[in-house]
Design a protein around this nucleic acid. Structure first.
Lengths: 250, 250
DNA sequence: CGAGACTTTGACCGTAGTCAATTTATGTGG
DNA sequence: CCACATAAATTGACTACGGTCAAAGTCTCG
């Protein structure tokens, strides 16, 4: 087995793998939203009172948007990182779609910020966030619909890189992901075993380095073209101040 | 998987399979929106002027929301039926996502109706429509992420049944779809050959009857449970008056 | 009839799934 | 600090679902 020792940064437990390490961004986030709720890893985020819609913002940690089929198969639709938004209907919580915390998570209620209408201010930001959210759903569809296992994994890693980078969670071109291979598998529509073998292959071929929840992508440009990844076009929002870090190349 | 050009060549036979036959609903639709544009089969719907966002409503016909990868692989994200809404950024048109007419199509601009804010009136209807649109993206992800070929096909057919029924396009529990097997394949993340074999199997097993663009599903209840299909929960909108037809069982 | 779009078939291949066992963390209580 | 329990990661053997290629058959329409 190949746990590349080249990586310096390290974390002890799952809770230290999430975003809560990044004091800077958590602070930034906290200055915008008061965290109204803390969620334990594995717990799901409840929708509001029956029938009422609830829009939440992730302040820190990772959340997965999940659906479990009657026969136990599971599909993860998307990952929510700090700054991401999700709307939940009560209905969407029942057998349909659930938000499950993958780490310790802090969320805030976005409802208070207004409905997300065009124009300036937090409302506009919300609109933008949900536009990008939808954009990611399309990427997800392409991934599982048309990409090979190798491409899927790379494509997802590239997306996570960009998103984490945008909120300042990429350090020395490495980032941490609190995802087990099983979570990966359920997000990419593959089996755990195959994910495992695919990751090994990617490591063997020197495309990525990963171990203990830390990932490093080598030659993102090449990987992007290999995995049909196209960086998001829309920018701005949650943490503009960190944008500078996007300049760092690999 | 196909290169764009192949789609266009012939549109005649296809046009007769579309929704434009249903005079009743087209009339209903026309009473709400003035059709501002007609699109030929195979043509794509252009986004507005650069940078400007455009929200359109399909008045009649079928539209596919598509993405073509650099190497020619194609993924269809969703089908838009009469009454469905789609928002396009200029950016989303470039190498990202395109709306392509599958039949003769009439569209209207929804922008004039207001931004889709909470409350009553056309705005609320728009919000609802786009919520359901998003819901369908999730269904699509489950389909291609976790269902087998047989399940995928059935699941999609069941969704189309419900959507067409809701707008009065199901007659005697049969409906018409202007989709070639290739379009089906690109929507479901399968190859044409496999779609073909899957359809044959479904016919052999007596689950569906289909030919010449007409489809009939036998025992939808059973099929739904087999294909992990759950009917949409949200209702209302485009054509309330036709809801009665939902009562018809198989 | 001929052309092109679509569907269907057969042979063969390969990616990814399944099952089952093993190894490696990670964590816990004594 | 060790024994044990549990979650994750890994491996091997085997299967199968779905892809690819290439050819033939159908349908529609001009």
């Amino acid at each position: 087995m190949v746990l590349e020792g080249e990586i310096k940064a390290r974390g002890r437990s799952i809770t230290s793998l999430g975003a809560e390490e990044s004091s800077v961004d958590v602070k930034t986030a906290r200055s915008f939203w008061r965290a109204v709720e803390r969620i334990q890893p594995g717990a799901s985020i409840s929708s509001g009172p029956a029938g009422r819609e609830r829009t939440i913002v992730v302040v820190s940690g990772w959340v997965s948007e999940t659906r479990i089929l009657p026969d136990g198969r599971r599909q993860i639709f998307s990952f929510l990182l700090p700054g991401d938004v999700a709307a939940m209907t009560h209905a969407s919580n029942i057998g349909n779609r659930g938000l499950v915390a993958l780490t310790n998570v802090e969320i805030a209620d976005a409802g208070a910020l207004g409905g997300g209408e065009a124009g300036e201010g937090p409302g506009a930001w919300l609109t933008d966030a949900s536009r990008r959210r939808e954009e990611r759903l399309f990427e997800q569809i392409v991934r599982i619909g048309r990409l090979s296992a190798k491409e899927r994994v790379l494509n997802l890693l590239l997306e996570l890189y960009d998103r984490l980078d945008a909120i300042g969670l990429v350090k020395e071109s490495a980032f941490r992901i609190p995802l087990t291979q099983e979570v990966f598998a359920d997000a990419l529509g593959l089996s755990v075993v195959h994910i495992n073998r695919t990751l090994q292959q990617l490591r063997r071929e020197g495309m990525v380095t990963m171990g203990r929840g830390t990932v490093m992508l080598h030659d993102r440009q090449r990987l992007a073209s290999f995995a049909c990844y196209q960086a998001e076009i829309h920018h701005g929002g949650f943490d503009q101040s960190r944008r500078a870090s996007a300049a760092r190349s690999n």
